[in-house]
């Protein structure tokens, strides 16, 4: 190719590529739009009104009934099975479950990560290797005995049973933070040490404030995982008072008649479970993208 391609022609040549990209974006997002579209369709009308881009008679009744805001009869008239639904409660449970685990786990694992990265004690590397080995174990192996343990303790359908296994640590979080602490320069810590600060002061006053970024990244990942967690909460806390959103959606589906599921209600509940995700993207989009890309660079 001897003559330089003009900008205009280049743009035109790239048009198919742009179309592919936009198509991919469409496939990523359209299902979520369809979820919302179904959620605002009146249940009884769904069999005849399920193809247009907008429902003929948009309504909020499905949201109201999954949130438990309308009477049982009204809910049944709108296509519900009559089962009790209170997504406010499940939403709260999800927030508590996610919040507790994210805060406690990040803090405790930061302490441990710091110890593994900076302190000297006997058996440090051996212990750390045990943690790394635990990373490889698929969760189902410990899930069965953990369920048995929680059951024996009488903690089924309690918050403590729900959060116990991941409240204090996951091997991944320890591993992740230790790698980060290894990477930060020691100068500041050294200066603090010369000023007479002990390990606790250094950790709280110097290290934690300096590593806000990675801590936040880890907390974000943990929060997303915990929010999405399904099997464990379904097994140990299916009861109304401790039921989290994901488990509630599974149970909702089970209660719905097999032949004609309550799609409008299910989509309204699903939409509620996605709201926090969208907030996350709106507020922390850049950080989220950076942290994922960062884990790619590490590879």
């Amino acid at each position: 190719m001897s003559a330089p391609v003009t900008v205009g022609r280049r743009r035109l040549r790239r048009l198919p590529a742009w179309i592919c990209l936009i198509l991919a974006l469409g496939i990523s997002l359209f299902p979520l739009y369809w979820m919302l579209r179904t959620a605002i369709t009146p249940g009884p009308e769904l069999p005849s009104d399920n193809a247009g881009l907008l429902p003929r008679h948009p309504t909020l009744i499905n949201f109201e009934r999954v949130l438990g805001l309308v009477s049982r009869d009204e809910a049944r008239a709108a296509g519900g099975s009559g089962a009790n639904l209170s997504f406010f409660l499940y939403l709260r449970n999800s927030v508590v479950y996610t919040g507790l685990i994210t805060c406690a786990q990040t803090l405790f694992c930061a302490m441990a990560g710091y110890a593994f990265a900076r302190l000297r004690f006997r058996g440090r590397d051996a212990l750390f290797n045990v943690f790394v080995a635990a990373l490889m174990v698929p969760p189902i192996f410990t899930l069965l005995p953990n369920f048995a343990l929680v059951k024996q303790l009488g903690w089924l359908n309690t918050y403590q049973g729900l959060v116990a296994p991941s409240l204090l640590m996951t091997p991944f979080a320890v591993f992740f933070l230790r790698q980060f602490f290894l990477g930060i320069p020691r100068d500041v810590e050294q200066a603090a040490f010369i000023d007479g600060a002990g390990p606790w002061t250094i950790f709280w006053r110097v290290v934690l404030p300096m590593t806000k970024g990675p801590l936040f990244t880890l907390a974000l990942t943990t929060a997303v995982w915990t929010w999405n967690d399904y099997l464990w909460p379904l097994l140990v806390a299916p009861g109304e008072d401790t039921r989290v959103l994901t488990a509630a959606l599974g149970i909702f589906l089970k209660q719905s008649p097999n032949t004609s599921p309550d799609w409008t209600g299910l989509m309204a509940g699903s939409a509620l479970s996605v709201v926090p995700v969208l907030l996350l993207v709106v507020f922390f989009g850049r950080r989220l993208v950076d942290s994922i890309q960062f884990s790619g660079m590490k590879g």
Binding site: L29, T246, S273, V274, V277
Partner: peptide
């Protein structure tokens, strides 16, 4: 990345 954040149950 939005679909990745959607709970798998959802």
């Amino acid at each position: 990345v939005v679909p990745w954040l959607v709970p798998s149950v959802t």
